[in-house]
Every structure is written in structure tokens, then in C-alpha cells.
């Protein structure tokens, strides 16, 4: 093996290991892991579920909210959410039919919502304004209309 090649391979390895370490620290030390809820639910009985039978915005603590949300073609329930600025919002979601995506444009909120699984993702909204929530996983002919907003006041 040539000397340059060795140097190059070492640099490559260090780079990849560096990526791993950075990702690891972010995930485990800062709790910035990707949304990975593991709870299951019967996708055909979402309406009878103890939590999802009543979707809505719930205040669970000081400046803390939980949004229990069901996704179905082509809407988010509840839609047009309003919360005060500076609050930490946990979205607890499941799908009633096909696979949907949950994305809030301009934030890092991005998660898959699949039938049979509960998904949670938490975001703190500091800046007031209107945020666009949209479905980013193709779900059918009305996919481009599946959107709502969250208004931070």
C-alpha cells in the first residue's frame, strides 16, 4: 500500500468515526435522538383508544402542552392549533389509515406516522408566528392538500 493511500484511509476513518461520535453525543448526551416511540396501537381501533379517542391540545404542565393528534386522509386532527410562545409541545400521533408524514416547515420536527404505531416528537416554540404543518409522505390524491397550521402567540 502506498504511503499516500495510508494517509488517505486514516483521514477517511477519522472522518467517519468523527461523524459517529458526533451523532452519538447528540443522541445520547443531548437527547436529540430521532423520534423513536415504540408503543403500538390497533390501527383499526384508534377511535376506541384511551388516548386517541379524544384528540386535542392538553396543557400538561407549566408551558408544557401535549397535542394528541390523529392523521387520516387528508387531514390532521386537531388542526389549526394555537399555543403560547415559549411552550414545549409534545405531539403524540398515530395514523388511522395509510402512512403519513408529519413535518413543521422551518423547524426540525419531522417524523413518520404509521398505522399501528404511536409516534411522539417534542418541540419548543420560542418564536411567535404561524407555522405550516404538512404531510410529507405520499398518502393519496389529496396529499398536497394535507396541511394545517400551528400558531404561536
Amino acid at each position: 500500500m502506498l504511503k499516500h493511500e495510508k494517509i488517505w484511509l486514516t483521514v477517511s476513518s477519522v472522518m467517519i468515526i468523527g461523524f459517529m461520535i458526533a451523532t452519538g453525543i447528540q443522541t445520547f448526551a443531548f437527547g436529540m435522538g430521532p423520534p423513536s416511540e415504540t408503543e403500538r396501537v390497533d390501527p383499526q381501533k384508534v377511535d376506541e383508544h384511551e388516548v386517541f379517542s379524544e384528540p386535542g391540545v392538553y396543557e400538561v404542565g407549566e408551558n408544557k402542552y401535549e397535542v394528541v393528534m390523529t392523521l387520516e386522509i387528508f387531514s390532521f386532527n386537531p388542526g389549526d392549533i394555537e399555543i403560547p410562545a415559549g411552550s414545549e409541545v409534545t405531539f403524540k400521533m398515530t395514523s388511522k389509515d395509510v402512512t403519513h408524514g408529519f413535518q413543521i416547515a422551518g423547524t426540525n420536527v419531522n417524523a413518520m406516522v404509521m398505522p399501528g404505531y404511536i409516534q411522539t416528537i417534542t418541540q419548543t416554540f420560542d418564536e411567535p408566528g404561524e407555522y405550516l404543518i404538512l404531510c410529507n409522505e405520499y398518502c393519496g390524491s389529496g396529499h398536497q392538500l394535507m396541511a394545517t397550521t400551528i400558531t404561536v402567540v
Partner: peptide, 21 residues
């Protein structure tokens, strides 16, 4: 499937390595 539900963070993390490899 990084932002999929149903898979724990540690499994996803180990998979980062499998992809980067």
C-alpha cells in the same frame, strides 16, 4: 427509516454506522 416509530434510538444509532460504512 431513521424517523420511523417502533425502532429504538440505540438500534438506529448502530445503523448509522452500517450506513456510513
Amino acid at each position: 427509516q431513521i424517523v420511523d416509530p417502533g425502532i429504538t434510538e440505540s438500534v438506529k444509532y448502530l445503523h448509522v454506522f452500517m450506513s456510513l460504512a
